[in-house]
């Protein structure tokens, strides 16, 4: 529902009925009719003054006062907590400003890349965690047996080929001491 604007004539009429100073009767209004309206309004006002008390006390004053005191205590408690709240807010502000700094973009990108590289290329395991292992061993020579042993102090793995025919005593085992690079040979081409 839209409020209709009050015309200046109506406003002046209302002021005249209320007997306000500097409120002359608007022009064109019948004085008798207006006086009747004024008397009716005065009668309603008198009636209201007679039946409606000018001062109204709360229904339960003790409860009202207790509620007021409780509100005061709550506000005091809020004021005591306020410094910590303000500090937290400022910490968040500082972090936000820090995150918005231009160099932060590149630095974060570099850090993320470094983390990704380390995550993808895990550090090689320590060789010490596992020693030499002989997976298969075989001697094509007849009447031979092979044994695989680990030295008592775990310092070496030993493959013993037993039953080999002795190397002829009349032949010399020539010793060499070489560190020259080898000519590479394709796989499985002795």
């Amino acid at each position: 529902m839209k409020d209709e604007p009050i015309s200046p004539q109506d406003s002046q009429m209302t002021r005249w009925i209320d007997a306000l100073p500097d409120a002359p009767l608007p022009e064109g209004i019948n004085i008798d009719e207006a006086s009747r309206e004024r008397a009716a309004a005065a009668a309603v006002a008198t009636l209201l003054r007679q039946h409606v008390p000018l001062r109204q006390d709360p229904p339960y004053p003790d409860f009202f006062n207790a509620q007021v005191l409780k509100k005061i205590r709550d506000e005091e408690a809020l004021l005591e907590r306020a410094p910590a709240t303000r500090q937290a807010a400022s910490w968040r502000d500082v972090l936000g400003q820090w995150l918005r700094t231009p160099w932060m973009t590149g630095a974060t990108a570099a850090a993320c890349t470094a983390i990704a590289i380390f995550a993808i290329n895990p550090r090689p395991l320590d060789e010490a965690s596992s020693g030499t292992r002989v997976l298969t061993v075989f001697s094509p020579e007849p009447n031979t047996t092979t044994r695989v042993m680990t030295a008592a102090d775990q310092s070496a793995v030993v493959v013993s080929v037993d039953g080999l025919s002795a190397f002829p005593s009349d032949r010399l085992v020539v010793g060499l001491h070489t560190t020259e690079p080898q000519s590479l040979v394709a796989s499985h081409q002795p």
Binding site: S130, G131, T132, E141, A156, V161, S165, F167, S169
Partner: peptide
């Protein structure tokens, strides 16, 4: 020429492989 022994071995730097071969003299 003879193959005395053949093997597949996982070799680490910490633990060498020792092969006890034929008798000689």
């Amino acid at each position: 020429d003879r193959e005395l022994v053949k093997s597949t071995t996982i070799l680490t730097a910490k633990t060498p492989l020792i092969i006890a071969g034929p008798q000689w003299r």
